[in-house]
């Protein structure tokens, strides 16, 4: 199967500090790929190279290349278009301080969608897609800030879905949520991977084992191991991977 992302010889520097070393990885379509590793290992940094969010950091410099369906995203492309294809959900739920409806409609509106009927449809479909519709359908015009943490995070997922992306990047999406909300988001991911390619950074090994098809282990800015999740967790090829997943460090 053709990979969604194929990354070759990727290096990333923050000023003089090299955060990523020679990353080579092929991320498959319509699967959940988990990125694990201790804090500061570069997994979040790597995730942010996939939709060029690192462009926001002035000092970040990148060499190598990342292809999305065969097109180099670090060539002269429209970054905003890229981000409509590769959506992102953040660690802390970050709904905008506006109504639930406006939160979902925000992305499409920025792309010039004005038709009221179409927006209504997008909002409903996205909220259904994020398993939030039934909980909020009666208060779409209420502020999104009044939702619980778990609802806010699913709203952020719905907001990402509204752009009809091909990929959804998730940066520790459940680390700020309680176990029940976490479970809901995880179940949602199971649904989402039928339509989308998901790349998730997680600190929870159990989570990676539960939800992902592929797991990549990062250490000190290097990709140590990348394989099917059961293989990585039951029969890791590298000693350092084994040490990490068995809890000997990190």
């Amino acid at each position: 199967m053709k990979p969604k992302f194929s990354v070759s010889d990727l290096n990333l520097f923050y000023g003089n500090f090299q955060a990523l070393h020679q990353i080579n990885i092929e991320i498959p379509s319509n699967q959940v790929t988990a990125l694990i590793g201790p804090s500061g290992c570069g997994k979040s940094t790597f995730l942010r190279t996939l939709n060029r969010m690192n462009d926001l950091v002035d000092t970040a410099k990148i060499t190598g290349n990342i292809q999305l369906d065969g097109e180099n995203i670090y060539s002269d492309i429209d970054v905003m278009k890229l981000r409509t294809r590769v959506g992102m959900v953040f660690q802390k739920p970050n709904p905008f301080p506006m109504s639930i409806y406006d939160n979902i409609a925000y992305g499409p509106r920025c792309q010039g969608v004005k038709d009221k009927q179409r927006l209504n449809q997008i909002v409903e479909d996205s909220l259904r897609g994020a398993a939030l519709w039934d909980e909020v359908k009666d208060r779409l015009n209420k502020s999104a800030m009044g939702l619980s943490g778990g609802q806010q995070q699913r709203l952020c997922i719905a907001r990402a879905i509204a752009m009809e992306p091909e990929v959804i990047l998730m940066d520790e999406p459940t680390s700020a949520l309680d176990p029940i909300a976490t479970k809901k988001v995880e179940e949602l991911m199971e649904q989402l991977k039928k339509k989308y390619t998901i790349v998730i950074v997680t600190h929870s090994m159990q989570q990676a084992a539960r939800i992902s098809d592929k797991t990549a282990f990062f250490l000190m800015g290097e990709l140590i191991e990348f394989d099917d999740t059961n293989k990585v967790f039951t029969n890791p090829q590298d000693k350092r991977t084994e040490d990490y997943i068995t809890g000997r460090f990190g």
Partner: peptide, 27 residues
Amino acid sequence: VPKSYKEGSLALGASKIQTIFKVTLPA
């Protein structure tokens, strides 16, 4: 204005100017 608002907006494919007028200034 929390940086997370700006990041959220940019990650949805909004431009810098759209982000300023639609998210940052209202916030």
